[in-house]
């Protein structure tokens, strides 16, 4: 019974794929199961790992978001500009706080528009994405710059641990901001599983009318979900600057699709109501491995998009096929009844 249940889940197939892919990479390059590679993967997981938590929550609630890269970049750029202009030199926490607040406001704008106009979230966020990006480029006249405020700049060199490969003489370091990934993942997992707000998000995604009849404040839940994504995106903006070591206001354009792909690959249903933290993390890990580790096998990086596409179709296809079989089974039961 337990194994049967496991076989129904997308997470299982993603985990198997990850395992097989890592074996193949190991056989071809001998470089996968090394401390260096693990640290590099963990580092590469920070941004997609955080963002998928927010997107997953939105998709579970029956919505979607394509504006979070724009929110992230705008919050990041505005915060850095502000700190540079004021020559701020206090704790770096303020940079995170300011960017998170800006992101929260932008996310709440999304949420409010969705509640108020009752338009599909896709259309609203498509619009606001363009507005946020345009605002950053036109009003703030954004440009790439390596000049960072002091506190942010100092964070760039803050690592949890460093591993060095003696043979090759390469060392990889895990940035301190990795801690935030763990905190955010733990928070999201707790929220979704153990709070009534989290259960409300699932309920809303399952059937909005029923959720309202059950006494959930559905608009409040929607506001929370989009606000959370916005705040998270703002936070990620600063995190990313620290990882990259410079201010790159256009670097996340198009990243929404990668995150949505990771979430869907991890078993979250695009129609809402279903999704797990484990699944989304596995999805993000698989896509990160494809874009990070294919190069270890000597496959040119531009193939990674191709492989990602195949994985999305296969990965979601397996569970869709299972669901179809289940439905047929159900119909057959009716026949017997």
């Amino acid at each position: 019974m337990k194994t049967k249940k496991l076989l129904k889940r997308n997470e299982f197939y993603v985990a198997v794929t990850i395992f097989l892919l890592s074996l193949v990479i190991q056989l071809r390059s001998g470089q996968f199961f090394t401390a260096n590679n693990f640290v590099d993967l963990a580092r590469a997981m920070i941004i997609p790992g955080m963002l998928t938590m927010g997107v997953m929550m939105e998709i579970i609630s029956g919505g979607i978001d394509v504006s979070f890269p724009a929110i992230s970049m705008l919050s990041m750029y505005a915060t850095l500009e502000l700190l540079l202009k004021t020559e701020y030199d206090g704790p770096v926490a303020l940079a995170f706080a300011v960017a998170t607040m800006i992101g929260l406001c932008l996310g709440l704008i999304n949420g409010a528009l969705i509640c108020w106009l009752k338009l599909p979230a896709f259309i609203i966020t498509l619009g606001t994405s363009s507005i946020y990006l345009g605002f950053m480029q036109a009003v703030l006249k954004s440009h790439t710059s390596s000049l960072l405020p002091g506190p942010v700049s100092r964070m760039v060199k803050s690592f949890l641990l460093t591993v060095t490969n003696q043979e090759l003489g390469i060392s990889s370091s895990l940035p301190s901001v990795f801690v935030f990934l763990i905190i955010i993942v733990a928070f999201t997992a707790f929220l979704l599983k153990y709070t009534m707000l989290g259960r409300g998000i699932y309920a809303l995604g399952g059937d909005p009318v029923a959720a309202e009849r059950a006494g959930f404040h559905v608009n409040g839940i929607r506001l929370f979900v989009y606000g959370f994504m916005g705040a998270l995106a703002g936070f990620v903006g600063i995190t990313r600057t620290i990882l990259v070591g410079s201010c790159q206001p256009n670097s996340l354009i198009g990243y929404e699709m990668t995150c949505i792909a990771a979430v869907v690959l991890g078993g979250t249903r695009i129609s809402g109501g279903h999704g797990t933290v484990t699944g989304s993390l596995l999805g993000a890990l698989l896509l990160t491995m494809v874009s990070n580790s294919l190069i270890l096998m000597g496959i040119p990086t531009y193939w990674s998009k191709f492989v990602t596409g195949i994985l999305i179709i296969l990965g979601t296809g397996v569970s869709a096929y299972q669901a179809l079989k289940r439905q047929k089974q159900l119909a057959a039961n009716v026949l017997e009844d």
Partner: peptide, 11 residues
């Protein structure tokens, strides 16, 4: 109990 039952299919 409504005609559509108002249950949550995903839970």
């Amino acid at each position: 109990i409504y005609q559509d039952f108002s249950v949550f299919p995903n839970l």
